[in-house]
Amino acid sequence: MVSSSLPDAKILSVRTLDNKDARWINLVQIEYQAPDGKVRTWEAMRRPTRPKDSPVDAVHIIATRQSPGGVSEHEVLLEKQFRPPAGKVVIEFPAGLVDPNETLEECALRELREETGYVGEVTSSASGAAAGLVLFGSPASSFSRALSVMVNIDPTLPENQNPQPKLEEGEFIDCFWVPLKELHQEIRRLDAEGFAIDGKVGAFAEGIEITKLWQQ
């Protein structure tokens, strides 16, 4: 069983917030011309923090490693973090917002180090040979865009022997490794225990499981 140090997190209240008081997300109204030629409106959320030169708001880090201890299998790094909109502890990939004058690769390695303590090497990203797709997480309600960056973590490096996260004030994150071949099963188990499953993690796990079925 995966332990958690986040058992006491809970929602205390919810109130409507005006845009002038919002730091991370704004509610906007979009005026657009529909396929029928009529001018219509749509409500959506938009992050005011995206750098002008960045195609995305954030990166999601799919960090893997060869299992330590001589076991010949790959593991993927996941996090547990309480997310107030979900009202639950969420199982997710390491992730973070892009800073100004920062490449997506730099953002991925910085966020990985800050949230997990691990030092990794980018294996594919937006500017790599295997260009990443810009993902629209909720295109019906949000401008938000993200990109997944693949990172390899070498468990034999001294800096990865006892990784120490550098979390910001108010951040509470538990990290844990899951064998890729057991990911789908583990995600199902965590869901049954009451954890919320981030859509990107769930889709990743389902994709791996589908490939297993096709190989039979």
Rank of each mutant, 00 (worst) to 15 (best):
S67E: 14
S72H: 14
A146S: 12
E111I: 13
G96Q: 08
R83L: 15
A108V: 11
G96S: 08
A63W: 01
S67G: 03
K10N: 10
T116L: 04
Q33K: 15
G70I: 05
D57S: 00
L135P: 00
G117S: 03
A58W: 00
V122F: 09
P35D: 14
L112A: 02
E206C: 04
K80A: 13
D154Q: 13
L133G: 00
P55W: 10
K10Q: 14
K20Q: 14
A86E: 13
A205W: 00
Q81A: 15
R40H: 05
I25R: 08
Q215V: 06
L183Y: 05
K212N: 12
P155D: 11
T156W: 11
I187G: 02
P94E: 12
T103N: 07
G137C: 04
R113W: 02
L12S: 04
I187R: 02
G96Y: 05
T211K: 08
G96P: 01
I187A: 05
L190Y: 01
E159G: 02
G194V: 08
M150C: 06
R65V: 01
L97M: 11
M1L: 06
P35N: 09
G137K: 08
G120M: 11
T49L: 15
W42G: 04
N19F: 14
P35V: 07
D191F: 13
L157Q: 15
E186V: 07
V2D: 01
A95W: 13
F204T: 00
I61Q: 06
